[in-house]
Nucleic acid binder design. Structure first.
Lengths: 178, 178
DNA sequence: GGAAAGTTTCAATACCTTCTGAAACATCGT
DNA sequence: ACGATGTTTCAGAAGGTATTGAAACTTTCC
C-alpha cells in the first residue's frame, strides 16, 4: 500500500550502506565497496557520472574505485551503441564474484605473508636442532604455515578455476545436520 | 656460523612485523596483531611490561590490545607462582586459533550484514511479483544471501565445535591433484 | 590502614588512509 | 586540426582510527 517507486531506491541505498560498512571491516575502502554494491544491486550499466551523483562522491574517487574494481575483476566495462561513454557493470554471478575476491585477496595478502614466514624460518636455520628454543620457534612457524597451506588448498579447490565446487560441497555438507 | 642468540630475536621481530601487516589488511589494528604475534611466536607467558618494552608501545595501547585478544579467545591469562602480576599466553594450537578468529569475525561482521540484507529485502516486499525491477532486486539479494549462508555453513562445519574437520577435509581434498 | 604494585580508562594527539577538486591528458567527431 | 566530450592523475584537505600519557582505580601485602 506504500507508494511504490521510491522504496526500491531506499532499499538499494540501505544495501549500499551495509556493503560499504562490511568493506571497511575487511580492509576495503568504503567507497570502493559502495560502488560495487551499487552496480551489483541495480544490475544496470552505469557511467561514472551516474555513480558520482548517486553516491555523492568526487570524480577522482569514482574513477579510482572503478579502476580498482576492474582490477579485481568483479566489474566490467560496457558500451552503449551510439554512445562513446564508458559504462560499468558488476559481475552478476555471486559465485564468480566470490571467486574473484578470494583469489585476489589470497594473492595480495596471504601469499606475501607466507613468503615472509618462510624467510623468517630461514633466518634461523643455522641453529636448528641445536637449541630447544630455536626448534620450538621453527615448529610454531611450521604449524602456522601448515594451516595457511591447507586453507589455500581449500580455497583454491572450492573457488578455483572449476568454481562450482563450493556449491556442491555446501549441499554435500548440509545433510549431515540433524 | 652466525653468532647464535640475536638472530632468534630478529626472526621473531620479522614475524611480528609480517603478522601486524596482515592484520591491518584485514581490518585488525596493527598493534593488536603484533601483540598476538609476539605471544604466539615466543610461546612464553609475557606480562604487560614485557610487551610494552618489546613492541615499544604505551601501556594504554598494550592493555587495550590484550583485552581485545582475551575477548577474541586467542590469548589467555596466566599466573606465575609467587608473582601476583598477570601474564598472557597465546593459544598455541593454530586450529583452535583459526576457529576462534573465524567465529568472532563471522559474528561481528558477517551476521550484521546478513541481517541488513534481510531487512533490505523486507523493505520492498509489498511490490514483489508486480514489477520486474523489484523482482530482479529481490533475486539479487537472495543470491547473495544464499552465498553467505553456504559460506557460513562451510565455516561452521569446518571450524565449528568439532574442529578437526578442516584438517581432515584438507587431506581429503589434496589427493585429487595430479 | 596505608603504601606499593598493578591495571584500566579516557581525553587529547598523532598518524595515516581516503577523498576532493582541479588540471593534465586522451579520444572522438566534424 | 580543432573543439567537445570523456578519463586519469595528483597534491592538498578532510576525516577517522589508533596511540599516547597521565590520572583514576583496584588489589595485595605488611
Amino acid at each position: 500500500m506504500a507508494m511504490p517507486g521510491g522504496d526500491l531506491r531506499l532499499a538499494q541505498d540501505r544495501f549500499v550502506a551495509a556493503w560499504g560498512q562490511m568493506g571497511t571491516a575487511w580492509g576495503i575502502s568504503r567507497t570502493m565497496a559502495e560502488v560495487h554494491a551499487l552496480l551489483y544491486i541495480t544490475g544496470e550499466a552505469l557511467c561514472t557520472d551516474d555513480i558520482m551523483a548517486r553516491l555523492e562522491i568526487s570524480r577522482g574517487n569514482a574513477s579510482m574505485s572503478l579502476r580498482a574494481l576492474l582490477d579485481w575483476g568483479i566489474v566490467t566495462r560496457a558500451h552503449k551503441r551510439g554512445d562513446r561513454k564508458e559504462y560499468f557493470l558488476a559481475e552478476q554471478d555471486v559465485w564468480v564474484m566470490a571467486r574473484a575476491i578470494l583469489r585476489e585477496r589470497l594473492k595480495r595478502e596471504v601469499e606475501p605473508l607466507m613468503a615472509a614466514m618462510h624467510e623468517t624460518r630461514d633466518m634461523t636455520r643455522a641453529s636448528q636442532g641445536r637449541r630447544k628454543d630455536y626448534d620450538d620457534h621453527h615448529e610454531r612457524l611450521d604449524e602456522l604455515l601448515g594451516l595457511f597451506e591447507v586453507m589455500e588448498v581449500l580455497v583454491q579447490r572450492f573457488v578455483g578455476p572449476a568454481g562450482e565446487g563450493l556449491q556442491a560441497a555446501a549441499t554435500l555438507l548440509k545433510p549431515d545436520e540433524p
